[in-house]
Each structure stands twice: as structure tokens, then as C-alpha cells.
Amino acid sequence: MTSAGAAPTPPDHTARTTPIASGAALLLLADGRFPAGGYAHSGSLEPSITAGRVHDLTTLESFLSGRAATVGLVAAAFAAASCRATHDHDPARLAGLDTALDARTPSPAQRATSRQLGRQLLRVATAIAPDHRLDSLGARPHQPVALGVVGAVLGLTPRDTALAALHESVAGPVAAAVRLMALDPFATHAVLARLGPLLEQLAQQADQPHGDLDEMPALSAPLLDIAAEQHATRTTRLFAS
């Protein structure tokens, strides 16, 4: 019984009062169990296995390092730039980044996948950390742009967001590899661990600020584009992309 007689305020579940510590936020975002839909995608590994280009641990490692150094780097650079634009309160820059990423994604199937994953990531983020900055994007932003904004909302630095994007660019295909090729999960994770220094180096490269969007990384991986297009028309497939 209180003498003041004021009714206790009910806990507000819609507003996050304490920010998540950035280390914990990075783990949350990079966790394969984060329900943003990434588990349904193999990052074009499934069609590459079907085509016979990936068939063992050696070819898997080569696939992963090539993927990280091309489309992985591009995704990481756009995630870092989107994170920076969100910290700088610059929604116009975010729209520009989204268009610039379209120009770097020639495969319509990959554009659709990226926007679908971006939408799903925004929905999860809105539930775990409601923030007006999440509403500044359209309903279907590219995944790296959404990742950058979510990273900023969770208090991550652009570099950590870039590292999360790079980790995701290889960790997803590694999880898929175990299911698609019946490889030893210990051995596939050893491959993932060996890629660590490369991912760190690429994250640093991705974190370089670029004033001109045209100068942002644009390294392409034509075989991944072709694989994505072929996979989109296949009726028997385990992964969505």
C-alpha cells in the first residue's frame, strides 16, 4: 500500500529502454538461429553442387572464399554504409544505397531473394527492437541495407555490421553444405574457421567510407548469378536459393 496512491505504470513492452550491449547484439544478429529466414537459402551452393562445381571440402572452401571476396564484400560494404547512414540520420543515403545495390545485382532471382530476406529481417527487428529508424526503409529493402539499419539500431559499429554480413555470406552455405553433400560438420566448420582471417580483412575493406556510391565495391561473381537463375526455375530443390 503506497501513501501517494499513484497507480503503478504497466511495463511497456513496445519500447526498448535498455540498449543491448553491442557484443551480445552482434552474436544475436549473426546467430544462424536468428529467425530472419536465412536458413532456407544456400547462397547458390545448391545449384553449384548440382552443376558439379562443388563436390568436396576443397571445392567448398574455394567456393566460400570466392563468394566472400565478391558478393560477400559487396554485401558487407553496403551493410556498413547503411549502418553509417543510419547513425548519421541520412535516409536519402539509404535510398541511394538500395538503388546502387540493385545495379550490382544483375540476377532478378537474386534481387528477389535479397529483398525477401530484407523484409523478413525488418519484421524480426521490429519485434525485438522497435525503433522509428526501421520504418524509414521501404517494405522490401535489400538485405544488406536492412542489416545495416538493424545493426545501427542494435548499437553495432559499421565494421561489426560488415563482419556480420560476411559471416552470413559463408555460414549459410556451410550449414547447407552439410545437408546437401553429407559432409562431416566438424570438417565444414574447420573450413569456416580457416576463413576467419579473410573475413576480418574483408570487413576492414568493407568499412572504408565512400562518398560516391559509384565507387563502392562492385565485384561480381557471374557463375553465382547464373546458378541463381537456374535454381529459380528448378522444381526439385531443398533450398529456396
Binding site: S44, S48, T58, T59, S62, G66, A69, L219, A221
Partner: peptide, 14 residues
């Protein structure tokens, strides 16, 4: 450099 190759596994470069 090998790792800059766009996702093309060794030995099967197009």
C-alpha cells in the same frame, strides 16, 4: 589472386 576469383572452384575455372 586465387581468392579474388568470383566463386569459381579451383580446377574448374570456366
Amino acid at each position: 589472386p586465387p581468392r579474388a576469383r568470383p566463386g569459381w572452384p579451383r580446377g574448374t575455372e570456366p
